[in-house]
């Protein structure tokens, strides 16, 4: 594989395309490609063509630690994480074809951000007993994420339990876990009040327009929307999510299985950033609460 990539580089000249690479090759090139989801505030997004967001900031810190320049490999999300890892970390997307340079390597991220860190997921097997995610290494947890409801305090006094959504409309991102939860839990009693939007920001905008009384999404997304709105009318709820499967999960990174060494080196950098409080600072600069991933909560710091 490496030989093939080399050969392509030699015969065609360096075209600046980014296949995922060995640690030494990354260092030698002076550039690291950080994979981040497109248009996904507050994690990764663009303002006037400039990449922003917590994942981008962490990517910058990783690049700096190695004395490299960071370039963003923008990821258009597919239907699930397996697809995103295949398209962006180890294989490349089948539509990524270069007509003028058909032997060019596919565009991949050296390191992909915002990949859940979950042993059960990493070691999941298919019905043939084979590892599903054997092509990637999932490593470097840097944040714990969970679900959060925000509400319009002029419509609802408080949200003590989700039972209020039997009576009040709530907005969710379509085809998300909050969508499944609100349309199927408790015999579907909240179903008729569940309104669907293409993104969390659209759901929040609908709350601001008075169309729904609350929104449910990931904590950082909701914190970000509340910060952006800058209006005390929109508040964070304190309810739990009874009988909801996964209430919290950890976020880390992924590299291709072939480039494990790169992962190890990045892991060391991110651990330092967590322990010296750098990551928490990044989160607070975006008005987001920060929770340490389980690995750091369980082990004494």
């Amino acid at each position: 594989m490496r030989l093939l990539v080399l050969l392509a580089v030699l015969t065609l000249g360096w075209t600046g395309t980014a296949q995922a690479r060995y640690y030494d090759d990354v260092i030698a090139s002076g550039v690291i490609y950080i994979g981040a989801y497109k248009n996904f505030p507050p994690y990764s997004f663009e303002v006037d063509g400039k990449p922003q967001g917590v994942d981008i900031e962490i990517g910058h810190r990783i690049a700096e630690a190695f004395g490299l320049k960071m370039k963003v490999h923008w990821i258009t999300p597919d239907e699930n994480l397996e697809d995103d890892l295949r398209n962006n970390v180890w294989k490349g997307h089948y539509l990524d074809k270069d007509e003028a340079n058909p032997l060019a390597a596919k565009h991949l991220a050296d390191v992909m951000m915002r990949v859940p860190y979950d042993r059960e997921y990493a070691f999941k097997r298919d019905d043939q007993g084979l590892l599903i995610n054997e092509q990637v290494v999932l490593f470097g947890p840097y944040q714990r994420e969970r679900w959060q409801v925000a509400f319009d305090s002029e419509k609802l006094e408080r949200v003590g339990t989700v039972a209020v959504f039997q009576y009040h409309p709530i907005g969710v991102e379509i085809d998300s876990l909050p969508d499944f939860y609100l349309t199927s839990a408790f015999g579907g009693q909240m179903r008729k009040n569940t309104h669907h939007f293409f993104s969390n920001s659209e759901a929040f905008a609908a709350m601001q327009a008075g169309k729904v009384d609350a929104v449910m999404g990931m904590r950082a997304e909701v914190d970000w929307q509340i910060g952006q709105a800058g209006d005390p009318r929109y508040k964070l709820a304190e309810n739990g999510f009874p009988s909801m499967g996964k209430q919290q999960w950890d976020i880390g990174m992924a590299v291709s299985q072939r480039y494990r060494q790169l992962g190890n080196e990045v892991d060391v950098v991110v651990e330092r950033l967590i322990r010296n409080g750098e990551i928490e600072k990044i989160y607070s600069s975006y008005n987001l609460r920060y929770e340490l991933p389980g690995l750091y909560q369980d082990v004494a710091q």
């Binding site: 989801y37 996904f40 994690y43 999300p77 239907e79 699930n80 994480l81 995103d84 915002r114 990949v115 859940p116 979950d118 059960e120 997921y121 999941k124 994420e145 085809d175 998300s176 876990l177 499944f180 990931m218 499967g245 996964k246 999960w249 976020i251």
Partner: peptide
Amino acid sequence: EPTAYKKGAAYLG
């Protein structure tokens, strides 16, 4: 399939 993720979020596949 509860051990599933989508766009950085827990998901039910």
